[in-house]
Design a protein around this nucleic acid. Structure first.
Length: 425
RNA sequence: GGGCAGUUACCAGAGUGGCCAAAUGGGGCGGACUGUAAAUCCGCUGUCUUUCGACUUCGGUGGUUCGAAUCCACCACUGCCCA
């Protein structure tokens, strides 16, 4: 048992904490859980912080329980949502539960030979056997509506103009019951989660107290925001997923590399396991020469390795170097091998005879799915956003022909600074 | 069941007969500057198209009109209040 709470505190990972939590953790090996909603078949980086809470917990010698919300996913958490959620079909839900489960497996140690082996549970397993009547008598009787209405997630919706269905209203009770069930059956005394979960979590500890007089604990981590107030974890391409098939390791690496200075300093504490003095040294080094982006690089390195492994990280760095290290250099600096081995960017194959015959730039771009239509391609060209082989193209009539081929084989298309497409014949 | 308000593009939200593909803000994308930042400034942001223009859009369906996001009827949905 080490100083888990102190560790998390300096990292800025604790928002609210229930009194007595630290004492409980120092007293004995404690089981603690975090719930994950199966809203998609992969987790995204928004779930990374709760995952890291579990990892820290296990490192500190406690027992992590990851709960996949097969049942709660059917209800829909109103927290932080201004309107009623769409219901997922049971089929999608099952698929998502499996996907999320598999991802959680890779971050925690499930080796049954250690006393604090991680455990994975699905709340559908206990909810499927509970009837509605049972539930409202068993759980509902102990919590007043007044209590539930006072919750922020509920209050906001009552004050807003979208209303709230009974289904979503009951969500906190369903989640609260999870905690009760785990407390009773798995001796789980602590729940963690994002700060938006505080209300739901507290309903759980309350239920445990009123129903069986048990004492349960909780703490939450702050929700990650960008310094400029923007949403965290979203880019033009949508969510940053943990699944390499949805977000390539290169894109994942790039996301962290592009963090702003202010964000990087906060995020490196939260998202890496680097010790405090090392982080402070990195921050100092970064401040003396911000252009080197020492923090961003380290942050991106640690996280890409954590999620995708060393070899994927190496490839991501390699791709990054090829594409960005020498953007002023003539394009020939990239060898055939360089181009062939670029990973993580969009590649398309194109008919050689079309290039040999020469093709207009607009058709070339749309046929290689760089743009969806000629209109879109034209607009981007007019805005000066398209480069071929690192040369900005402004001539809408330009013909793409043999002389544009690099090593007789490739054409490197760039949209903006960061979006690369490699066309090969 | 009764009364009232509402439904407009990714979101918020203006528009109450032609000047409406639809103000403004946010978001997104691109450009300049830079460090593949931040801040700032500029451009684009319904679809397709050789910038002409064509087509589809303002909850749905019908109607009035030369002409409808705008007027009328019915329907659906949402919110609030009363029962």
């Amino acid at each position: 048992m080490n100083q888990l709470i102190k560790e998390l505190q300096w990292r800025g990972m604790i928002q609210d904490i229930m009194p007595g939590t630290e004492e409980q953790l120092n007293k004995e090996m404690t089981s603690a859980y975090v719930g994950f909603d199966p809203t998609a078949d992969s987790l995204h980086i928004g779930s990374l912080v709760p995952i890291l809470l579990l990892v820290h917990l296990q490192k500190a010698g406690h027992k992590p329980i990851a709960l996949v919300g097969g049942a709660t996913g059917m209800v829909g958490d109103p927290s932080g949502k201004s309107e009623e959620r769409n219901m997922l079909s049971e089929e999608d839900l099952n698929k998502n539960v499996i996907g999320v489960r598999n991802q959680l497996m890779q971050f925690l140690n499930f080796d049954a030979s250690i006393p604090n082996a991680a455990e994975l549970v699905n709340n559908y397993d206990w909810f499927k056997g509970i009837s509605f009547l049972e539930f409202i008598r068993d759980a509902g009787k102990h919590i007043t509506v007044n209590y539930m209405m006072a919750k922020d997630s509920v209050k906001k919706r009552l004050e807003g103009d979208n209303g709230m269905s009974f289904t979503e209203f009951t969500y906190q009770l369903v989640q609260g019951y999870d905690f009760y069930w785990l407390f009773k059956n798995k001796n789980c005394k602590l729940q963690m989660g994002g700060s938006d979960q505080w209300g739901n979590i507290v309903t759980g500890t309350e239920l445990i107290r009123r129903k069986i007089g048990g004492e349960a604990f909780a703490f939450t981590c702050p929700l990650i925001k960008k310094a400029d107030g923007g949403k965290f974890g979203k880019t033009e391409k949508g969510n940053i997923w943990l699944d390499a098939n949805k977000t390539t390791p290169y894109q994942f690496y790039q996301f962290w590399l592009n963090a702003s200075d202010a964000d990087a300093a906060a995020w490196i504490k939260i998202f890496t396991f680097l010790p405090q003095d090392e982080i402070n040294a990195l921050i100092t080094a970064h401040e003396s020469n911000p252009a080197d982006r020492i923090l961003q690089k380290k942050l991106a390195e640690e996280l890409t390795i954590f999620v995708h492994g060393q070899s994927e990280f190496d490839k991501a760095v390699e791709t990054t170097q090829k594409l960005f290290s020498n953007t002023k250099a003539p394009i020939d600096a990239l060898s055939v091998e360089d181009l062939e081995s670029i990973e993580g960017i969009v590649r398309t194959d194109y008919a050689a005879d079309k290039i040999n015959a020469g093709i207009d730039i607009l058709s070339f771009l749309t046929e290689n799915t760089v743009f969806e239509s000629k209109g879109a391609a034209r607009k981007m060209l007019q805005n000066g956003g398209v480069s071929i082989n690192r040369e900005k193209i402004t001539d809408l009539q330009m013909m793409v022909e043999k002389k544009h081929l690099l090593h007789d084989k490739f054409i490197l298309v760039q949209v903006g600074k960061k979006n690369y497409y490699l066309v090969s014949i």
